[in-house]
Amino acid sequence: MSDDQPLQHVVLIGFMGTGKSTVSKRLAEHLGCAACDVDAEIVKREREEIASIFASRGEEAFRAAETAALDAVLGAQDKLVIATGGGAVLSSVNRELMLRKGYVVALTAHPERVIARVSQDPDRPLLQGGVRERVYKLLEDRKHAYDFAHLTIDTTDLTVDEIVNRIAEAAARNGQHSNS
C-alpha cells in the first residue's frame, strides 16, 4: 500500500453465510481502516429493517435501496472494507460500481456449511420456508453471479484469520485496483 497509489475499497461479495460480515470487521482491523456493512447502511438510510422492506415493499424496492446504499458507501473518500448483501451482485450496475471502485473478493462455502450458518437466522427474508431447499436453489440460480471478482476464497475450512491474511496478501500484490 504505497502512498502514491489511490486508496481503494475492498469489497466482499458472496452468498449469505459465507462470512462477509465477520471477515470484513477483522480485515478492516488488519488494514487499519473502517468496515461497512451495506445491509446495515440500507437499514440506516431506509429507517426500516431488511425483512420489513421485503415484506412491505418487495424485493425490487429493496434492490433499489441496496444500489443507492452501495453507491454511497463506494463514494467514501476513506478506504473501507465493505461487506455486501448476498444478492448485491445480481445488478449489473452494482457489479460495475464494485469493479470500478474496489478490489472485489468473493467468499464461497460448501452449501451444507452455509445451511448450518444461516438456518437459525430469522433476518434472512429469502430463506423463508425450507432453508435447505432455498439455499440449494439460490446457489444454483447464482452459481456464476460472483465470477467477476478479482479473487475467490472458499471459506468452508478456513479460520477468519486465514481468510483475512489471504485477502490482505492478494490485495497488496494486486495494488488494490481493478483491471477493468
Rank of each mutant, 00 (worst) to 15 (best):
L90H: 01
G32P: 12
K101I: 00
S52L: 10
A76D: 13
R95S: 00
R134H: 07
A172P: 05
K137R: 15
E60N: 11
A51V: 15
I163C: 14
K20A: 02
A149G: 02
V164H: 09
V105M: 05
D157K: 15
G19V: 08
E60A: 15
A34Q: 08
A35M: 07
R100F: 00
G17S: 15
H30C: 13
L7T: 10
S2K: 14
L12V: 04
L80F: 10
A88L: 06
I13T: 12
S178K: 00
R134T: 13
E49L: 15
L7A: 12
S119C: 14
T156K: 06
T18V: 08
D141Q: 15
G87R: 11
A64T: 08
E41P: 07
E46N: 09
L97C: 09
N94D: 10
Q5L: 14
R117Q: 13
A172R: 15
I53Y: 05
D154C: 12
D39Q: 02
N174E: 13
G102P: 01
L127F: 03
A55M: 10
A34K: 08
G17K: 09
L97M: 13
G32E: 03
G32C: 04
E162W: 10
K137S: 06
Y103S: 12
S91K: 01
L90P: 05
L126W: 11
E49N: 12
L70M: 08
R142G: 05
D121T: 10
R57D: 14
V23E: 07
G58L: 08
A51S: 15
V118N: 06
V104E: 04
L7F: 13
K137N: 11
L80S: 07
R26A: 13
R47W: 11
P111V: 07
A168H: 07
A76N: 06
E46Q: 14
G87K: 04
L90M: 13
G75M: 05
E29K: 08
L12P: 01
R132F: 05
I50R: 02
R166P: 04
F148H: 01
M98R: 03
S180V: 10
S91N: 01
L27H: 02
M98H: 05
A61W: 01
L138S: 07
R117L: 09
A170N: 12
G14C: 04
M98W: 08
Q120L: 13
V135G: 08
E46F: 09
S56D: 09
D78Q: 14
Y146N: 04
F15P: 00
I163Q: 07
D78V: 12
A170D: 14
V10I: 15
